[in-house]
Nucleic acid binder design. Structure first.
Lengths: 121, 121
DNA sequence: CAACTACCTGGAGCGCGCTCCAGGTCAAGT
DNA sequence: ACTTGACCTGGAGCGCGCTCCAGGTAGTTG
């Protein structure tokens, strides 16, 4: 049962220390263990949860929705269906996001090609 | 020489009226024509420029960099090399963005698959 | 020509997601 | 025992990109 300091958790998760504290404050991170002196101690499970949060953030899920998801996760196994639905809906958004990004990437590359032809002339 | 009202420009570009005015104020949109009464009139060129702005925004370029790009564009043809460089650098960022998004999309789909298996059991 | 809607300006305000700060506490090294 | 650096809390502040508002004007419609 490996246990991680706040700075290790920050490094491994890619969130800043301040962000980890903020996430705990707003309920995205529950039941983080503490030393007798009050310092946070992160477990492997916590890091796993953080990497899911990282995934959701990187794919553009708003904090409020992540809080909803976290709330469901805390509520236990009978929310699995709802959580699945939430992630599926998010996944559809991610798909749309990707399509837009790919389309605009093509436009961008076309524009660059156009500029390059201008430079060549 | 088709000319568009502000609301037409908004609809075609996907920016709000307020955003169009804001962009003009900060120098992203220069020399927008006006009626004698002071209303904006957008040309096809303006809409073309707006669609480039749309592309840059959709791919995550910060406003400040777009302003830099706009400044170069206003300066004329001898900034083409610099503009090309700016877009190329941005394109590299877009590529990285896409890779991250695709990676996290896979993680998300894995998570969904995991939940679905839980639901099936 | 009256009414109505679209548009104008300058400037304030907002929502998001952190980020920073002051003033302190804890714990590891020497 | 002392120093040092990581960590703590509560709360303020920030940067971005708009968005909204008040108070007024333009121009189209019946």
């Amino acid at each position: 049962m490996i246990r991680y300091s706040p700075s290790e958790a920050a490094e491994k998760s890619g969130f800043s220390l301040d962000t980890l504290r903020y996430y705990e404050k707003i309920g995205l991170l529950a039941d983080i263990d503490r030393t007798s002196g009050g310092r946070r101690v992160f477990s492997d499970d916590d890091l796993g949860w953080l990497s899911l949060l990282r995934c959701l953030r990187d794919t553009g899920m708003p904090i409020a929705r992540m809080c909803r998801f976290a709330e469901l996760a805390r509520a236990g196994a009978d929310t699995v269906a709802e959580r699945t639905g939430l992630l599926e809906e998010h996944a559809r958004g991610v798909e749309a996001q990707l399509e837009l990004l790919l389309r605009q990437q093509r436009n961008l590359n076309d524009k660059i090609a156009f500029y390059r032809r201008q430079l060549a002339a």
